[in-house]
């Protein structure tokens, strides 16, 4: 049974081998950054690595607080987008009259460059007020002595930023749920009829599972889109989140800080994506991711 004991080891080795290109690309990126910074040699045009690090260190508490805020919003937006996308997708896919009636609106909503909608979402929540589900003390209060619990308080809320993020992320899930549900093979259709399955049973036992691979792949796209949505909304909804911090860094000409914040967003987005993919792999049956 040597193979059985070797398996986790082989798996780990395989995993490491798959990470090599990513790690290499990352290393190349750092080297390129250092070389370009050395060539330009002006921190006002292109921040060097050390200047970026010092810029980040200077604002470390701000970044930590805002980062928690942004990624909490991203998670709320992501969850809303996935739940609404699958839910509405199931309904629209099942009832073809509604599907046909909603088609022009869906195409229109898909083709609108979504940032233009952000002001609408933000104004509505300025008028109506945010719906806060609950608040918690963010990790910044534990990480930094200078941060009080009140400063680090983060809210899980439905507000302009999160609803806009959800709107942006909603479409891929919605559309691929419909596509997936409608591409059930005819033989299964016949099989279901033969067994006397009701409409709901067809959905529950056949169509949903046919749509699952489509849904999971669209969820991967939604990860990035909900981050984009949240950051764009933060650009214009002043004073919230990491998106506003970049704008602030731009306005104060703090290039090192700007580089640092952008880099942190990129890394955060990458990690969030990996976590979602891993979670999907664990939660769904094999072969659907």
């Amino acid at each position: 049974m040597a193979t059985a004991s070797n398996r986790p080891f082989a798996k780990a080795r395989q995993w490491i081998r798959r990470q090599i290109p990513t790690v290499l690309a990352g290393a190349l990126f750092v080297v390129a950054w250092a070389v370009i910074a050395r060539l330009i040699n002006n921190n006002r045009i292109f921040a060097s690595i050390s200047y970026t690090i010092s810029g980040v260190m200077e604002h470390s508490t701000d970044i930590s607080i805002k980062l928690t805020e942004t990624f909490t919003s991203v998670i709320v937006a992501f969850v809303l987008a996935v739940l609404l996308g699958i839910g509405l997708g199931l309904i629209v896919a099942e009832i073809s009259t509604i599907r046909q009636m909603a088609l022009p609106v869906v195409i229109f909503a898909y083709a609108v460059p979504h940032p233009i909608l952000a002001p609408m979402f933000i104004i509505w929540f300025i008028i109506g007020g945010d719906i806060t589900i609950f608040t918690f003390t963010g990790p910044s209060a534990y990480l930094f002595d200078s941060v009080t619990a009140a400063q680090a308080e983060t809210a899980i809320a439905i507000n302009g930023v999160t609803t806009f993020g959800a709107w942006v992320g909603f479409f891929p899930v919605f559309i691929s749920t419909i596509t997936g549900m409608n591409s059930l093979e005819e033989r299964f259709e016949h099989f279901g009829t033969l067994l006397g399955a009701s409409r709901w049973q067809m959905v529950k036992h056949f169509r949903f599972w046919r749509a699952l691979p489509n849904i999971t792949s669209s969820i991967k796209a939604t990860v990035q889109l909900s981050i984009v949505g949240v950051i764009v909304a933060e650009f214009i909804a002043s004073s919230s989140g990491i998106g506003y911090e970049i704008v602030l860094a731009w306005k104060t000409n703090a290039l090192g800080y700007m580089f640092g914040v952008i880099l942190i967003i990129m890394i955060g987005a990458y990690l969030f994506y990996q976590i979602v993919v891993w979670t999907l792999k664990v939660l769904t049956p094999p072969g659907s991711v």
């Binding site: 650009f235 970049i246 731009w250 967003i265 990129m266």
Partner: peptide
């Protein structure tokens, strides 16, 4: 170049907007 292309494609590129404006303004 593939890991680089995939990497850039999966990060939120829009976050670079202020930086681009800064550089162009420069």
């Amino acid at each position: 170049l593939m890991p680089f292309i995939i990497g850039v494609n999966t990060v939120p590129r829009i976050a670079l907007t202020p930086l681009v404006i800064y550089w162009v303004g420069f």
